[in-house]
Simulated assay, not measured.
Amino acid sequence: MGILSRTSYIIKSKVNSILNRAEDPTDTLDYSYEQMRDQLQQVKRGIADLTTQKKRLEMQKRRLEENVDKHNQQARTAVEQDREDLARKALEKKKAKMNQIEELERQISNLQNQQDQLVEQKDTLQTRIEEFRTKKETMKARYSAAEASTTVNEAMTATGEEFEDVGRAIERAEEQTQDMEARSAAMDELRETGAFDEVLTDKDQIDRELDQLSTDSGVEAELETLKSEVGDESAADESTSESDATTEEVDADVEAELSEIQEEEG
């Protein structure tokens, strides 16, 4: 299984696990994106490790090449000094080192191929991650917009229901107010008609009528008394007036007689 396949499998497993927990889809997208980035970092570390191994083999190859040159020079020097035995040994070492170099070259070539493949996969994965990031942000924006719209719609629905409740409350308040006003008006009417007095006393209708008759009789009697007193006062005034008139007449006669006597004496 390749790096991308393993990465895709792991990401799908993580995504499915998160979805099964019914988490926020935006969290799922962010988590998936972070997982892909982690996988990308792992691929980069893998490339770095592979490159390090390749560099080590290349360094080892250069040392072997230096030994080959050294053994080649040794063989030449030995031949110049007629030491074929030493020249043969030097050439044998040279041959062994060259075989090692060939093996290292194959390993380096394989590592290079793997490195090239990993770099290509890394670039592909990075491109997919960027595409996923764009889709993720777009999806998150859409989800946020849908969530906001849903929230607004739910709020409007709730508000509509609340308005209905308020309307019903207002109707009930209006009915209660009208009942209270009617009750107050009825109380005023009962108070004006004396109904409250009837409630506050133990007298029945007959008692109240008898009391009224007694009150009327008392008023009439008092009225007659006042009329009699006023009549007596008027009669007394007339008698006094007549007495005063008689006295004046007597006085006038006396004055007249006095006048006559005075004339006779004079």
Rank of each mutant, 00 (worst) to 15 (best):
V119K: 05
Q115Y: 03
K14N: 10
T215P: 06
I47V: 15
M156N: 10
E84A: 00
V43A: 03
L86I: 09
K12M: 06
L213S: 02
A96S: 11
Q53A: 02
V219G: 13
E209S: 01
S228D: 13
A186E: 11
E66I: 08
E249W: 07
K70W: 14
A256C: 04
S144G: 05
E264T: 03
F163G: 07
K61V: 09
D179C: 01
Q53V: 00
K203E: 01
S184W: 13
L226C: 08
E224A: 02
A169L: 07
E131W: 00
D27E: 09
M98T: 11
G2N: 11
T134D: 08
D116A: 11
S17G: 13
L190M: 12
Q114W: 07
T151A: 15
E263T: 10
E248C: 00
R183W: 12
T246G: 05
I10Y: 15
A145K: 15
K95Q: 02
S5C: 01
A235I: 07
N99H: 11
I101L: 04
T138E: 13
S241Q: 06
F196Q: 05
D179P: 08
L57T: 10
N20C: 07
D30E: 09
A145N: 13
D204P: 03
Q41I: 06
R191W: 15
E229W: 00
S109W: 04
E257F: 14
S13Y: 09
E181R: 09
I129L: 07
N99F: 05
I11W: 05
I18H: 09
T134G: 06
Q100V: 06
L125K: 01
V152G: 01
S13A: 14
E103V: 03
F132N: 10
A256F: 14
K203L: 04
M1G: 06
R172W: 15
I11E: 11
V79P: 02
G231D: 14
Q178V: 05
L91R: 11
E198L: 03
E257C: 03
V15R: 08
V79D: 05
Q112R: 00
V166K: 04
I47F: 02
Q178R: 12
T151L: 09
A221H: 03
A221G: 01
Q53Y: 02
A173H: 13
E34H: 04
A182L: 02
L29F: 15
R168Q: 14
V254N: 12
A22G: 06
L50W: 07
M98P: 11
G194T: 08
A169P: 02
K54W: 07
F163C: 12
R6G: 14
Q35G: 01
D24H: 11
S259L: 15
Y9C: 05
Q100N: 03
M98V: 09
M187I: 10
I261A: 10
N113K: 14
R172L: 08
M1P: 03
A146P: 07
Y9D: 14
A155F: 14
A173V: 15
R168S: 13
A141N: 12
L91D: 15
S217Q: 06
L40V: 09
V166F: 07
A146D: 12
N99V: 09
M180D: 13
N67D: 09
D188R: 09
T240E: 07
D197P: 10
A252Y: 12
K89A: 11
K122H: 13
D202F: 02
Q117V: 13
Q35W: 08
T159L: 08
T150N: 09
Y9R: 00
K136W: 02
Q112T: 13
A173G: 04
E137H: 02
E137P: 04
